[in-house]
């Protein structure tokens, strides 16, 4: 019976211990879920903040791209401006004659009417002067104007480019173009529509036509491609100033 003395209380204690042990283990297992839960919540929060950051960065990228587009647009518009400026510059270079130009046009060969002079002298030596059979400055001037009227874009006389400030005047036995003395035979080059230029020159009452009728050796040569050299002089403007736009 002495054995029974301890058996019951110990059984009870062990029984309680067993219940407590299992409960504690289960509770701890349940507790393990808690940290995982909070961990996952933390992870979710982290992910959410990072997603927010990501979306903000994406917005920034979008904004940056837009500003980049703007810059590129302005650059390209600048390029357009540059191109138009370059085009204008090229046109102005052609107009001012400071660059070599090439294109279709005509070449006019003119010379003094030496044959006519000889013939006239033989016929009536007293009333004939050599002056009447020479090419004069005004002849060239008129031809130049006629060429310009027909749309000539570049003109040169014996290699001298005729520009807006060019002078064509008598220099005794020679003709001055750009203050350079030129002597016959004259070769006038003009770039423009060859047919239109030659038609304009061969019209009745035109300077070229009258010279040709008068017996001057004159001929027109149509060219699909000819080169006219640049004006080698300088432009000097001492008085004229560009008027500022208001």
């Amino acid at each position: 019976m002495k054995m029974r003395n301890w058996q019951l209380p110990l059984t009870f204690v062990l029984f309680m211990t067993g219940i407590l042990l299992v409960s504690a283990i289960e509770a701890l297992q349940g507790q393990e879920d808690l940290p995982t839960k909070t961990q996952s919540e933390n992870l979710i929060a982290k992910i959410e903040t990072q997603e927010k950051e990501l979306s903000e960065l994406e917005k920034q990228i979008d904004a940056n791209r837009k500003s980049l587009d703007k810059y590129q647009e302005s650059i390209s518009s600048g390029k357009k401006e540059e191109e138009s400026l370059k085009y204008q510059l090229d046109r102005l270079k052609i107009l001012s004659g400071i660059s070599d130009v090439e294109g279709a046009g005509i070449i006019i060969h003119l010379d003094d009417n030496n044959k006519g002079y000889e013939a006239a002298k033989n016929k009536d030596p007293e009333h004939v002067t050599a002056n009447d059979f020479l090419i004069h400055d005004k002849h060239l001037l008129y031809i130049v104007y006629e060429l310009r009227e027909a749309g000539a874009e570049a003109i040169s006389i014996n290699g001298q480019r005729v520009v807006s400030s060019s002078d064509i005047r008598c220099m005794g036995t020679t003709i001055g173009v750009n203050t350079i003395a030129l002597s016959p035979p004259f070769v006038i080059r003009a770039i423009g529509d060859p047919d239109r230029l030659s038609e304009s020159l061969e019209r009745k009452k035109s300077q070229y036509y009258s010279l040709k009728m008068a017996g001057y050796p004159a001929s027109i040569e149509k060219q699909s491609k000819l080169i006219i050299g640049a004006y080698k002089g300088s432009y000097q403007y001492s008085y004229a100033q560009p008027k500022e736009e208001q």
Partner: peptide, 29 residues
């Protein structure tokens, strides 16, 4: 008998599955 008591206690504890809040799990341990 005491060992049987322990096994019964373990079984009852498992069977009852007493819900204990995680906060008190430490004290239970």
């Amino acid at each position: 008998v005491p060992i049987v008591g322990l096994l019964i206690g373990l079984f009852i504890g498992w069977a009852l599955n007493i819900p204990i809040p995680g906060v008190y799990a430490k004290y239970l341990s």
